[in-house]
Design a protein around this nucleic acid. Sequence first.
DNA 1: TCCGATGATATGTGAAACAGAACATCTTTG
DNA 2: CAAAGATGTTCTGTTTCACATATCATCGGA
Lengths: 188, 188
Amino acid sequence: MSKPGPQPNPDGRSSCDAALADDLGWSLGVVFRGYVAAANAAVAELPGGPRGYQVIAAAAQGEIGSQLALAHHLGIDRTVMTYLLDDLEGAGFIERQPDPVDRRARRVVVTAKGAKLLAALDSRLQEAETHLLSALDPVAQSQFRAQLSTIAANLNSVDPVDNPCSLADNVDAELPTPKAPAPVGRRA
Amino acid sequence: MSKPGPQPNPDGRSSCDAALADDLGWSLGVVFRGYVAAANAAVAELPGGPRGYQVIAAAAQGEIGSQLALAHHLGIDRTVMTYLLDDLEGAGFIERQPDPVDRRARRVVVTAKGAKLLAALDSRLQEAETHLLSALDPVAQSQFRAQLSTIAANLNSVDPVDNPCSLADNVDAELPTPKAPAPVGRRA
DNA sequence: TCCGATGATATGTGAAACAGAACATCTTTG
DNA sequence: CAAAGATGTTCTGTTTCACATATCATCGGA
């Protein structure tokens, strides 16, 4: 590479932004990847990476319920959730308590240690997020967050099988291969 | 026991939207996953899934250059790009032409068949994207697209190693585990 | 009580990503 | 001009992850 000639893009790193910028999929991929990378660095000490944080955060809310619901709403497999919770529990951040009303279900609760860590990670994550969106001014940032949240909430509430009308477009979109956010992550 | 339905559609599907909606990571994950699923359905016949589309689309622009630059800007590994291009070339959608100015590099060019498919997929993808963003009104949609594009362009242009100031936050964010959009995808 | 359904876990398998090396070619330097 | 380092591509091997399947325990209804 390093062609000083007519092509102003040496290695193509800095020139093709405009070429692909109008592709929603590409933009989404870049931003998502950037988030994962930043979050990964921010929560490096947490087993499961960003996923672990999301699990703890969701558990701290307390509105989730069983592991299955948790897994479903985080977009990961049930069996994977088992290992993830194993690691998280092994690290002492969460606990599996028997559900009083359903003895086969386990309630995921955050330990004091987990809550403490969560608070620390929260600020770090917040900082990373702000840095991620630094290309937008504060007003646009909050706007973007709100819009993204709206879209996500809509996607989450609308189930493909429940919406015959929307089924025309993504009839196969049920669960082809729903990749999840956390790429790294060590198992014991 | 045969499964009654493809989508078990468990209980906790519709309750925790509000609880997690303010988490940027969660929203990003949901939207990204939704895009991957929709795109996967839209480009099911394409080897490599959404990635294959992005490769062809980028190649059609012609501004990329080598495979390496292509891989870097799509956020995938070089070795993976080799296989991906193998499949794409095997399907007759792209061709590897020797770069006239650099004999070790290969220029990825779209074949007529590939261009034809690209046009067809483009409209389908556009439809899927619009459906994905259907929670926003048209004005907000274009706004969201623009903002996302801005963020992506910013992330793509800013290299961690080039920005010592931003290095404090994501020093490890270089390429810990950049998961990529295409989960499915069969190799020959 | 019996039977199907549901939550959680264990096990096995296949695929994908990653690291490293090998080879060819370009660029730079002496 | 020759040699050394850098870069692009491909190949090989390894590890990890996600998924499917099966199993066990429990809940719900007939």
